[in-house]
Amino acid sequence: MLTSPLIDHILATIPNRTIGVLGDLFLDRYLDIDPALNEPSVETGLTAYQVVGVRSYPGAAGTVINNLAALGVGHIYPIACIGDDGDGYELRQALGKMPAVEQGGIFLSATRRTPTYTKPMLGKEELNRLDIKNRTPTPEDIQDRVIALLDEAWPRLDALLVLDQVSEKDCGVVTAKVRDHLARLAERDPKKFVMADSREQIWEFRNVAAKPNARECYSTRDRGGLSPTQETLDLEVWQRTSTLGRVLFATEGECGISLFDPQSPGRRVRVPAYPVFGPIDICGAGDSCSAGIASGMVSGTTHEQAAAFGNLVASITIQQIGVTGTAPPDLVRKRWSEVNK
Rank of each mutant, 00 (worst) to 15 (best):
L22P: 12
R29K: 14
A314Q: 09
A291M: 07
D32S: 12
G310N: 05
E102T: 02
G266K: 08
S290L: 15
R135T: 13
V73D: 03
T241N: 09
K119H: 00
N311Q: 03
C255I: 03
I202C: 10
G286P: 06
D144K: 14
P40H: 01
L71G: 07
D131T: 07
K192S: 10
D158W: 04
E126K: 06
L27V: 10
R240Y: 06
D330A: 09
T47A: 10
K119I: 04
E152I: 01
C255L: 11
N340I: 01
V54S: 00
I7T: 05
T44Y: 01
V339A: 15
P58N: 07
L226R: 15
Q263W: 11
T138F: 02
F260C: 02
P329F: 00
A306M: 05
D84M: 05
M98A: 04
T324L: 09
V323G: 06
I316D: 05
S227L: 10
E252G: 04
Q320C: 01
R206W: 10
V323W: 05
L161V: 15
D151H: 12
A60F: 01
L46Q: 07
P262D: 12
A308M: 00
L149Q: 13
V51E: 07
E231R: 12
G96Q: 04
T114H: 07
L182P: 09
D189H: 13
I147E: 08
P15Y: 12
A306L: 04
P262W: 14
L6G: 07
V178F: 04
Y30C: 09
G310F: 05
E90M: 10
V21F: 03
R206N: 13
P228H: 09
A110S: 12
A12Y: 02
W336G: 00
T44E: 13
R270E: 13
M98L: 15
T220C: 04
N134H: 02
P35Y: 08
R135Q: 14
G62Q: 00
I106E: 03
R268Y: 09
R156Y: 08
